[in-house]
C-alpha cells in the first residue's frame, strides 16, 4: 500500500458528516475525505497509483466533466470548497506515505486555507460572455448603408475599394458599440458581485466581437440579480449574444493571497 498516491479534487472545511458519501470521481472511482482534524481541513480524494491521467481529447473531456461533477456535488453539500486543477496527485515520499504528506501539508497551510474557505463560503462562480454580432451591430449605421448603396452602381475595382472601406467602418462601429456595452454592463455587475475578473474566451466566432468575458464571484442570493442585468442587456441591445454559465464552485477565485483585488489596490 505504501506506493499508493492520492488524487486530490478539492479542499474543504473539516466538519461532522460525510459530504463525499456516494460521490464518484474520475472513471467512477469512489471518493472519500481525508481529514486533517488538527488543521480543521479535509481533502476530497481518491486512492490510486502515483500516475497522472493521460489520454486522448475525448477521454480528457470526460474526466474533466467527472471531476467537475464530483467537486460540484461536494460543494453543494458543504457550501465551500477550494477546487484543485486536473491531475493533482500527492505521491508517497521517501520518508512518509501520501496521506501523511498531505496531512502535514494541510497543517502547515491551515491558516490561509481556512481563511480563504471562509471568504468563499456561500459564494458561486458565474461566467459571463457577451459578444456582439458584427453585422447586426452596424445594421443601422447610416454611413454603412450609404456605402452599400453606392457599391451597387460602381465598377468592380471601385467596389473592392468601397468594400474595404465598409469593412473598416463596420469594425469601428462594432468596437464603439462593444466599448459602450462593456462599460455599462461592467458598472452594473460590479455593483452586485464581490469580484469580477476578465478572462480569455474559450469559444470564438469571427463574426462576433468580444464585449466582456468575465468570471464573477457572487453570493448565492445574487445569482438572479446577475440574470436580471443580463436579460436587460439583451433587451436593450439585440445585437448582443449572451453566454451565462454556472453556478460553479469558485474555480477562478482560489488564489490565497489577495493581490490586485483589495480595496484601493486595483488597477
Amino acid at each position: 500500500m505504501s506506493d499508493r498516491a492520492l488524487y486530490v479534487y478539492a479542499l474543504l472545511p473539516d466538519a461532522p458528516g460525510d459530504p463525499a458519501e456516494g460521490v464518484t470521481g474520475l472513471d467512477g472511482r469512489p471518493l472519500r475525505l481525508l481529514r486533517a482534524p488538527g488543521a480543521g481541513l479535509a481533502a476530497l480524494v481518491h486512492d490510486g497509483p502515483p500516475e497522472p491521467f493521460e489520454g486522448g481529447d475525448e477521454k480528457v473531456r470526460r474526466w474533466v466533466v467527472e471531476q467537475d461533477r464530483a467537486v460540484v456535488a461536494v460543494w453543494e453539500r458543504t457550501g465551500a470548497v477550494l477546487p484543485m486543477t486536473f491531475n493533482v496527485l500527492v505521491a508517497p515520499g521517501e520518508d512518509a506515505g501520501a496521506e501523511e504528506r498531505l496531512r502535514t501539508w494541510l497543517g502547515e497551510h491551515a491558516e490561509e486555507l481556512a481563511a480563504r474557505l471562509r471568504e468563499l463560503e456561500g459564494r458561486a462562480e458565474l461566467r459571463v460572455e457577451l459578444t456582439v454580432d458584427r453585422e447586426a451591430a452596424t445594421g443601422d449605421d447610416e454611413r454603412a448603408r450609404a456605402l452599400e448603396a453606392e457599391m451597387q452602381t460602381r465598377s468592380p475595382g471601385m467596389r473592392r475599394l468601397l468594400a474595404k472601406k465598409l469593412e473598416g467602418l463596420r469594425k469601428e462601429a462594432t468596437e464603439r458599440l462593444a466599448d459602450g456595452i462593456h462599460a455599462d454592463v461592467r458598472r452594473r455587475l460590479a455593483a452586485v458581485v464581490e469580484d469580477i475578473r476578465d478572462r480569455t474566451r474559450t469559444v470564438r466566432d469571427p463574426r462576433e466581437a468580444e464585449v466582456l468575458s468575465a468570471a464573477l464571484l457572487v453570493p448565492a442570493g445574487e445569482i438572479e440579480t446577475v440574470g436580471t442585468v443580463l436579460a436587460d442587456v439583451q433587451d436593450s441591445h439585440p445585437a448582443v449574444r449572451v453566454r451565462f454559465l454556472g453556478p460553479w464552485p469558485p474555480y477562478s477565485f482560489t488564489e490565497l493571497t489577495e493581490l490586485a483585488s483589495g480595496p484601493g489596490a486595483a488597477g
Binding site: G55, G56, T85, V88
Partner: peptide
C-alpha cells in the same frame, strides 16, 4: 485558474500525451 500549490503538484501539469486541447 484553480488551486495549484507547490508541494502538492507532484505531477500536476503532466503532459497529457496526444491531447491537443
Amino acid at each position: 485558474a484553480v488551486l495549484h500549490l507547490d508541494l502538492i503538484v507532484a505531477v500536476a501539469d503532466i503532459p497529457l500525451i496526444g491531447v491537443s486541447l
